[in-house]
């Protein structure tokens, strides 16, 4: 199955709108994590608006595919996508991180419709995805499980405990993404604790490991199709991405990992995303 030209353009437009949402909501909150939200947003948009079976009017519908944001700090991306998909009104985005908001600083499934599990402490989403994928196999339920991890997150030992589990149980109903923007809070991953050779690591753990451009809708789609074709093992898409993607002065800047734009920077950024 191929995506039509029209659909690709539509997804790019949705991603542009979501990028604006991410920057607006974090500036309004005067905190949050815009950098890593901008690097993973194209994948989230492709999943929620083209690939996953889900129903915003019935967030708990049993037949839905599941998406787990293991890199929970990038929840502005998830909140933008969920609101644009219709899980809650777009106006809620303005309440991000404020007292009594449905949008917590890190994802909380008890507060936000469409959030599949609470996260924020890194390393745990793949194990959770495995649990859901195992239950689906047990119940012979045809659902897909998607897990979005950060690259810095792959320094957590629990990720590799989970990676062994996915392979052991041949979880071909699970597809993971690594948002490989090469930056973590304190700087370049390669200067702190390199993940390389990352593709070989995943392959040696028993996975099908693809390298894709995480900002190309076409390549993200092709990765998803390859994951569907792969039987007997889980698939990981190592997505080459740019932290702060889409705003010239934010790109490849570690400082925008956990810092919102000032109102002045925001208006400059929004002009770039017109």
């Amino acid at each position: 199955m191929k995506l039509s030209r029209k659909k690709i353009e539509e997804l790019k437009e949705t991603a542009r709108i979501c990028r604006r949402d991410i920057l607006r909501m974090t500036t309004l909150a005067a905190s949050g994590h815009p950098g890593g939200s901008l690097s993973c947003i194209d994948i989230l948009v492709t999943l929620f608006f083209a690939r996953m079976r889900h129903n915003p009017r019935q967030p708990k519908w049993e037949g839905r595919d599941r998406f787990f944001l293991s890199k929970g700090h990038s929840c502005p991306a998830l909140y933008a996508v969920l609101s644009r998909a219709g899980y809650f009104p777009v106006e809620e985005l303005d309440t991000l991180r404020k007292l009594n908001s449905i949008l917590q600083g890190h994802p909380d499934m008890l507060y936000t419709p469409g959030v599949e599990v609470s996260s924020g402490s890194l390393g745990q989403g793949l194990s959770i995805g495995n649990g859901v994928a195992l239950a689906a196999k047990l119940d012979r339920r045809d659902i897909k499980v998607y897990v979005m991890m950060g690259d810095g997150e792959c320094q957590e030992g629990m990720v590799w405990e989970a990676a062994m589990t996915s392979a052991q149980h041949k979880l071909d109903n699970l597809c993971a993404f690594v948002d490989y923007n090469r930056l973590q809070i304190d700087g370049w991953i390669d200067d702190i604790k390199s993940l390389e050779p990352l593709q070989l690591k995943w392959e040696s753990f028993g996975w099908k490991a693809l390298i894709i451009d995480g900002h190309s809708i076409e390549e993200i789609w092709e990765g998803l199709m390859e994951a569907d074709r792969t039987k007997g093992k889980p698939t990981v898409c190592i997505a080459r991405t740019v932290k702060g993607k889409g705003v010239s002065f934010m790109e490849n800047q570690a400082k925008y990992h956990g810092m919102a734009l000032t109102p002045e920077e925001l208006s400059k950024a929004l002009q770039e995303l017109e």
């Binding site: 599990v117 745990q124 793949l126 649990g131 629990m158």
Partner: peptide, 19 residues
């Protein structure tokens, strides 16, 4: 789950989420 206590907990959470 093998000698992987953190993965043990996370996988159980996933199974619980799936009912």
């Amino acid at each position: 789950m093998g000698v992987s206590e953190q993965d043990l907990i996370g996988t159980a959470a996933g199974l619980a989420l799936a009912g």
